[in-house]
Design a protein around this nucleic acid. Sequence first.
DNA 1: ACATTGCCTGTTATATCATTACATAACCGG
DNA 2: CCGGTTATGTAATGATATAACAGGCAATGT
Lengths: 132, 132
Amino acid sequence: MTSSDLTRNQQVVLKALSGSNVPLSAYDILDLEQVRDQGLKAPLTIYRALDKLQALELVHRIESLNAFVACDHGPHSEPVGFMSCDRCRKTIELPVGACEDVLRSSAKANGFKLDRITVEVSGRCTDCVEGT
Amino acid sequence: MTSSDLTRNQQVVLKALSGSNVPLSAYDILDLEQVRDQGLKAPLTIYRALDKLQALELVHRIESLNAFVACDHGPHSEPVGFMSCDRCRKTIELPVGACEDVLRSSAKANGFKLDRITVEVSGRCTDCVEGT
DNA sequence: ACATTGCCTGTTATATCATTACATAACCGG
DNA sequence: CCGGTTATGTAATGATATAACAGGCAATGT
Ligand SMILES: [Zn+2]
Ligand SMILES: [Zn+2]
Ligand SMILES: [Zn+2]
Ligand SMILES: [Zn+2]
């Protein structure tokens, strides 16, 4: 399945996220003119599109923000984390393969079999590093 | 400030979390008999106690679960992450100082100044590693 | 004593995030 | 055509979290 196989709703949602420089919640997406104009008007419509896009790794969910971003790095060979500026919300992907190794052995030492990892970092981007 | 300085509400909430072997949401806490019996009956009462307990590092929030756990390791010298079993919900703390180092330099390479890190891992505990 | 301050509390309402339930349509391989 | 799967529409509800405002209560300074 490639991105050209996306349904109309999925395309609309993906485009909304791609066009944003910050993570958007499902309701943020729903409120966009470009989305409303396409006839999407119920939360479930957005969430269903997001579910599919996440499964395709075209979109990531950021747990600590309850928000979503378009993937800007194509298929991932290693797990991905996120770094968000807590002033301007700018968010970038961080490869976290190195973390995964550490975590996997740490989990193993505690008798856990690791499945999924969530790594989310907040701080300040270059533009925002000074000031409020 | 020590834990003996906690207010009544804070003590009730902390005790509820300490007595659970799985993370609890604010509403889970609110629904507990032992909590209701103490007169706590509004979500805000629970959230306020949780805020304070988190500030004291007596309680941690797990972003990916929207839930809270009592800290079982006292004051932390390094950042802490969590490993949760996605079948039985058992959750343990994982020290993530090693991850922090990796993330800090990765963030720095991208012009970010790192502040707070969230590391949450899911998988299966020993008891649950086989089966559904 | 009195006012000031800070912190905790109670109550109500509201905001924000996400899913359930059920019906309908579209698509595809027998 | 039939039966299975996937996508969609619509409405209602559930789950998580905060806003706004009033009042209590102890510590502090004068
Ligand atoms: Zn990505
Ligand atoms: Zn910024
Ligand atoms: Zn802890
Ligand atoms: Zn388990």
